[in-house]
Design a protein around this nucleic acid. Structure first.
Length: 308
DNA sequence: GTCCAGGATTCAG
DNA sequence: CTGAATCATGGA
């Protein structure tokens, strides 16, 4: 296909509407790195082999895809959680008794965890360490452009592990990956021998999934938590990054807590959809929209002692 | 030129 | 086990 041919715009009819401000944060706020704002105000991106555009219209969210891509509507509806599973989980978060979470949730109504596939999430967050969101997007875009399958126009799918494993050093270097090139290369070589890794990982309970992810080069606690949350839909996963550390320190009084302790607090305090709460807090603190509170400061947990 | 980034790894204690 | 140094690159 020489260029992308779009269908007409169609309504998405989500279970819960997503206002324009929330949509922007959702597509551009650092959970996925494949969306960009077009000149007409729509968000254009690739997930899997699907090219799609999304915009906020007067009747709610609208989308369009490539002509002939009959699977695209189901794919985009799944990606955006159109059926509303997260709407119910969000409503069940403890925002009624937590004014900080309430303010963050009010700032971004309808905010969702994008349901990325494991491949997209792993590549994105392998590039994420010690980098800003804008630069992560640039790295992932360069990987797709140089090593990914063309999808029409200037759009490309993400590269396969095989393409990454066999790519020239010079090509990877040209993606501005820095030392993360070794992470991608190492993970690619390991997963190349395991073509069903995503299904196999997805069948594991979350602790075992995290352990498998952490066995990959370049995947530590935070990246594993992000891949579990964004790539495997483990909504209970609670990634603790620099922003969440700051949010919990500022708004919850948890100064001096270590990441593992903050993760324990987050899971206990926010419950089964802790990852969704984390995304509200992340977005709010990063955009200066987090209100502080004087809620009682919990006791710092001691590290869990393994019996025996 | 300096500082820092949705951290991970390696090494010293 | 914990904490510090190191990692490559680009933008502020």
């Amino acid at each position: 296909m020489a260029s992308a041919e779009w269908t007409s715009w169609r309504p998405l009819r989500l279970a819960e509407d997503v206002p324009a401000g929330t949509l922007a944060e959702q597509m551009d706020g650092g959970q996925a790195f494949r969306w960009s704002l077009a000149s007409d105000g729509s968000w254009v991106g690739v997930f899997g082999r699907t090219l799609a555009a999304v915009r906020s219209g007067p009747q709610g969210l609208e989308w369009r895809g490539q002509k002939g891509a009959t699977h695209a509507e189901g794919a985009i509806r799944h990606y955006l959680d159109a059926e509303g599973a997260q709407a119910r989980l969000s409503a069940a978060l403890p925002w009624r008794s937590d004014v900080v979470l309430q303010s963050a949730r009010t700032a971004y109504p309808g905010l969702r965890i994008l349901r990325q596939d494991p491949h997209e999430a792993l590549i994105g967050f392998l590039c994420s360490s010690n980098k800003r969101i804008l630069q992560i997007r640039a790295m992932v875009a360069a990987l797709a452009a140089k090593l990914g399958e063309p999808l029409g126009g200037d759009f490309h799918a993400l590269p396969s592990w095989e393409a990454i494993a066999h790519a020239d050093d010079a090509v990877l270097r040209a993606c501005s990956l820095g030392y993360r090139a070794a992470y991608l290369r190492g993970t690619a070589k390991k997963l190349l021998a395991r073509p069903r890794w995503a299904e196999e990982f997805g069948a594991l309970p979350t602790p075992a999934l995290l352990a498998e992810l952490r066995s990959l080069p370049g995947v530590g606690p935070k990246v594993a938590a992000c891949v579990a949350l964004f790539g495997f839909g483990r909504l209970e996963s609670f990634p603790v990054d620099t922003w969440v550390v700051q949010a919990l320190a500022d708004a919850y009084g948890l100064r001096g807590w270590k990441p593992a302790q903050l993760e324990q607090f987050g899971k206990a305090h926010f419950g089964e959809a802790a990852g969704l709460a984390q995304q509200y807090l992340f977005s709010a603190i990063r955009n200066g929209r987090l209100t502080r509170s004087e809620i009682s400061v919990p006791t710092k947990p001691k590290r869990p002692r393994l019996r025996k």
